[in-house]
Amino acid sequence: MSLRRRTALVALTAAPLVWAGAYEDFFAAILRDDGDAVAALLRRGFDPDTRNPKGQVGLTIALQNGCPKAFNALLAARRVNVNALNAQGESPLMMAALKGNLDAVKALLARDADVNKTGWAPLHYAASAGTPQHTQIIALLLENHAYIDAASPNGTTPLMMAAHYGSDASVQLLLDEGADPTLKNQLGLTAADFALRVSRTESAEKIAAAIRRRQPNRGKW
């Protein structure tokens, strides 16, 4: 057998061993948090940004399902796009912020993940839950120059999200860092309105106090 024919035969027989079912194996490995299996597929040339049938990329799937080993294996890949959006327009940094995964947020920021994505931003997602980790993530995003009054497509700001879904601590942090309490969304609602809708009187009072502080002092005759 000639060298050329032997080379062709090796290629034909080896390819199925490497790639047969690789697509299914990749997503199965992520969901069982098998970082070694994910890394092995990536070393063989599998695209880390491959999407599943629902348009989700591996990084986001790993974050959604609490799979840190798979996440770390994916993030270690040079070719991985840390700003890849899923079918809902969410980035891995947004998902890490939503999940309160402080370590993942730090790791993504170290890879230059986009802090100021247009539309819904990571800061909105960090403000949408009330654990201490979410407040820490808000602070970290702000340290990395996140725009504090980022407006979603319907004009919602991170302060509004924190007032409705987050914690009083997150509301206070955003106010202390300069969030504008007077802004309104497309429905004409302020952050105080968001808080009052869910009977969060303490947050509403914090926001009202911030608005008063912004008003010029009026002298008395």
Rank of each mutant, 00 (worst) to 15 (best):
D33H: 05
A14H: 06
N83V: 02
T156C: 01
K117W: 02
R111P: 06
L3M: 06
L102P: 10
R212P: 00
A28G: 13
A15V: 15
P216T: 03
N185S: 03
N81W: 09
A104R: 02
T7M: 13
F71R: 01
V38A: 13
A40W: 00
N72L: 11
I211W: 04
L189D: 09
M95W: 04
V10Q: 13
D47N: 15
I61R: 00
A40G: 08
A14V: 14
D193F: 08
L196T: 07
R6N: 08
L196K: 13
D168C: 13
G219F: 02
G130T: 02
L85A: 06
G66R: 15
A15D: 13
A163T: 01
M161D: 11
L189N: 11
S91D: 02
Y147M: 10
A209Q: 12
Y147F: 14
R6E: 13
D114V: 05
Q186F: 15
K106G: 11
S91H: 11
E177P: 01
L59Y: 11
R79I: 10
L98Q: 07
M160P: 07
V18N: 09
L123V: 01
K69P: 02
Q88S: 05
A29D: 08
A146V: 04
L59I: 14
T156A: 03
K206F: 02
W19R: 07
A127C: 12
L93C: 01
P181S: 10
L123K: 05
V105S: 02
D149C: 06
I137R: 03
I211T: 14
M161C: 12
R212K: 11
A192V: 00
D47L: 02
D49T: 14
A127K: 04
T190Y: 08
Y23A: 08
A179G: 14
I30M: 05
T131G: 09
G119V: 01
A8I: 14
A22F: 09
V171W: 05
I138N: 09
A20T: 11
T60N: 12
Q133Y: 07
N185E: 12
M94V: 04
Y23M: 09
R5N: 11
T13V: 15
L174I: 05
L175S: 00
L31S: 12
A96F: 06
Q64F: 03
F26V: 01
I61N: 06
I138E: 13
A210G: 04
L140T: 15
R44P: 00
L31C: 04
A191P: 00
T182Q: 11
A20C: 13
G45R: 12
R111D: 07
L74P: 00
S199K: 06
L141M: 12
D193G: 08
N101R: 07
A151C: 15
T156G: 00
R200A: 03
T182K: 06
M95K: 07
L63M: 04
G178Q: 11
V171D: 00
N101G: 10
L17F: 15
R51N: 12
A209L: 11
A87F: 05
A146I: 03
I211E: 11
A191H: 00
L140H: 08
